[in-house]
Design a protein around this nucleic acid. Sequence first.
DNA 1: AGCGCCATGTAATGCGTTACATGATTAT
DNA 2: ATAATCATGTAACGCATTACATGGCGCT
Lengths: 192, 192
Amino acid sequence: MIRTVPESRVSILGYALMGMMHKHPVSGYDLRKLFTSTPLAYFSDSPGAIYPALHRLEAQGLIRGSIEGSRLKRRKVFRLTTAGNIELKRWLRLPVRRQDVVSRMSELTLRFSLMDGVVPEIVVLRFLTALVAELESYVSELHSFLQFPQTGMPLSGRLALESGVRGYVAQLQWAKDALATYKKREGRKVKQ
Amino acid sequence: MIRTVPESRVSILGYALMGMMHKHPVSGYDLRKLFTSTPLAYFSDSPGAIYPALHRLEAQGLIRGSIEGSRLKRRKVFRLTTAGNIELKRWLRLPVRRQDVVSRMSELTLRFSLMDGVVPEIVVLRFLTALVAELESYVSELHSFLQFPQTGMPLSGRLALESGVRGYVAQLQWAKDALATYKKREGRKVKQ
DNA sequence: AGCGCCATGTAATGCGTTACATGATTAT
DNA sequence: ATAATCATGTAACGCATTACATGGCGCT
């Protein structure tokens, strides 16, 4: 009956919130609006998700909220603490593993989207390079899986599988292009 | 303090399990293996997810389990009840709405993958046609969102957004091809 | 005699969803 | 004046995750 210590993890939503307050302090309402207005809205904009998440992060000492505005019409803006800054960077620099590509691709995309200006460009380049490698290997595995005659598999099932493969192929092509874009930017910087 | 009646919903995992036992009765272990071995494994293969889900479905009267095997080394196989069959078909025939495309695309793919042999082909064709229409409209909205200069948006954020758009473009192309495949099959059937 | 697989479960925990509530401010 | 928006919250609920546990079977 020995149970491991919870060690207070941060949820994906938590990291998303932390990433969004890295440059400027933001309120819960600001964050909700960002989730509704941008199409990257993979997160819910419901207050029942965001406010508790902010309170959890504050209780963990990763962010700190301060009330702004004239006592009524209060607005609580949050900013990262030093510990929060360290934790955000640690998460952004985590290696890209095969299993992340297979079942947590959206988390990888989120991590990438928050990197700019938070970690040095070399880290972004390393991330994209590893992502391309893992995606290439996984796509080739999926292709060989599709190769087999798939006896007994219904047409719609086979097609759905193909849909997944195409999604990964698109991600791979995107990652290659993104890598090229970043390398071009690096080049420009060196010249300056 | 009036709270709406829970009306006992079925989770996505529940529908996936029901879809997988439509043709043949299966055990919980069979289902776990399917999740580990096929790359459509968007679901967890953990027993803590599957067995409780099966028990919930049974409690709702949608599936029925019967013990097979010589009293030890028991194996409990589940099959759909009449109510379960109706509920599965009802779910499969649900309309394709814009908001499903935006934030529940994986559920749509799951529904499609389970359709073959469960609902008539005309329903599959209608599903794909609606999916193509919704995806086309959403992709064009995303493109116009990307058009704007996006002042202040960091490079990685912009690129991540593009990654999402590319994913949707790939899904759209896939849906068109799948539609063509199904129409071809229809054609062959008529000729026979 | 021990390892790995077959097969089914349970308990604690965390967190997202849905649905409520409250009060201020701005627009019509 | 009243509707919409700003702004922040809480409570019930369901379900996935993680980490346990149990026992049989087959191979070496």
